[in-house]
Simulated scan of single mutants.
Amino acid sequence: MRTAVVIGTGLIGTSVALALVGRGVTVHLADHDPEQARTAAALGAGTDAAPDAPVDLAVIAVPPAHVATTLSAAVAADTARGYLDVASVKSGPRRELEELGVDLSRYIGTHPMAGRERSGPLAATADLFEGRPWVLTPTRDTDTEVLNLALEVVALCRAVPVVMDADAHDRAVALVSHMPHLLSSMVAARLEHAEDTAVRLCGQGIRDVTRIAASDPRMWIDILSANPGPVADLLGAVATDLQETVESLRALQSSDEAKRLGGAAGVEDVLRRGNAGQVRVPGKHGTAPAAYETVAVLIDDQPGQLARIFADAGLAGVNIEDVRIEHATGQQAGLVQLMVEPKAAPVLTASLRERGWSIRQ
């Protein structure tokens, strides 16, 4: 692939363009808002000038509701040899393309499983997709050349290709992306009118749960409008769990011991099912999650502290498998939680103490 057009210069489209330009592909940029395309071009994502001849590939990076019309117009203009979209929903746009009579042999639906809470070209990065799954949904009609072009894009963006059926993809993203986003927003909404004294108690747990609630609501309306059925089904199941949990918690307030025991059993059931589901979330490098030990170290909020603690861990011969930072409320300090192999935890703890670090249990 030597040339490409990216139609839609938001976060995903501009990130794709940056990655392709970085690998030597000539990229042309287009957007319904010319100023946004110019911004992406100024960032080094390509040129906002139209190509003189059909390019190798057109990447349609617009909201799901606009994929079919945008792609249909690009095909009618003979923009490229092949076409792919990067929308987060796959079955709806494909059905709309069929209704419009578009030649689907030159098209493949794809979805890079990457994003950020921020949107727009200024949030784009060339490494956004590195190591991330990138779903491809070919059909029996998909031309081999188009599939190969899509695989080349995935490789150039250093993502990991995953082939799925379009309907199966939509059910999967409803489970692992769309439904969790709504739940995060619902939890965050409880904070809107909460007392300031309560909000000041926010710790890492509430930050983890509400992080994705910071995303652009307009973007998510587009996404959810394209996949409402599977998301509604999942939320219905969650609503059942919520109602049963509410009833169990009410039972814990009862003066009847049998009811209290039943309530405790109900709460324990949902917590244990949560444990069983959480361990299925892939761990490091997409492998089965490992059981790590956490070494918590108190650090000051000063330049160089993180670099020094990582260097000291290296001197101890310990590999840091993962890391989290929990900031102390109202203090210029925080806890760095270093996740390591269980056998390495005592070694790291002793070594860091020798080097003057304050270890917290």
Score class of each variant (00 low, 15 high):
Val5Ala: 09
Val5Leu: 03
Gly8Ser: 04
Leu11Ala: 07
Ile12Gly: 06
Ser15Pro: 06
Leu20His: 10
Gly24Glu: 02
His28Tyr: 12
Leu29Trp: 06
Glu35Gln: 15
Gly44His: 01
Ala45Cys: 11
Ala50Pro: 10
Ala50Gly: 12
Asp56Ser: 02
Ala68Cys: 05
Ala68His: 02
Thr69Leu: 09
Thr70Phe: 08
Val75Ser: 06
Thr79Leu: 14
Asp85Met: 01
Val86Tyr: 10
Val89Trp: 01
Ser91Phe: 01
Arg95Ile: 03
Leu97Glu: 01
Glu98Met: 10
Leu104Ile: 05
Ile108Met: 12
Gly115Arg: 05
Arg116Asp: 11
Arg116Pro: 12
Glu117Leu: 10
Ala124Leu: 02
Trp134Tyr: 14
Val135Asn: 02
Pro138Val: 02
Thr139Met: 01
Thr142Trp: 03
Glu145Cys: 08
Ala150Asn: 07
Ala155Phe: 12
Arg158Asp: 08
Val162Tyr: 09
Asp170Phe: 01
His178Gly: 05
His178Glu: 06
Met179Asp: 04
Leu182Asp: 10
Val187Cys: 11
Ala188Arg: 15
Glu192Met: 11
Glu195Pro: 10
Val199Glu: 05
Arg211Trp: 06
Ala213Trp: 07
Ala213Met: 03
Pro217Lys: 05
Ala226Gln: 04
Asn227Trp: 08
Ala232His: 05
Leu234Trp: 04
Leu234Val: 13
Val238Trp: 12
Val246Trp: 04
Glu247Gly: 15
Glu257Asp: 15
Lys259Asn: 08
Glu268Thr: 12
Val270Pro: 00
Pro282Ile: 10
Lys284Thr: 15
Thr294Lys: 11
Val295Pro: 14
Leu298Cys: 07
Gln305Val: 11
Ala307Lys: 11
Gly314Val: 12
Val318Tyr: 06
Asn319Tyr: 09
Ile320Trp: 13
Arg324Asn: 07
Ala328Thr: 06
Thr329Asn: 13
Gly330Ala: 07
Leu335Arg: 13
Lys343Glu: 15
Ala344Ile: 04
Thr349Lys: 10
Ala350Pro: 03
Trp357Ile: 02
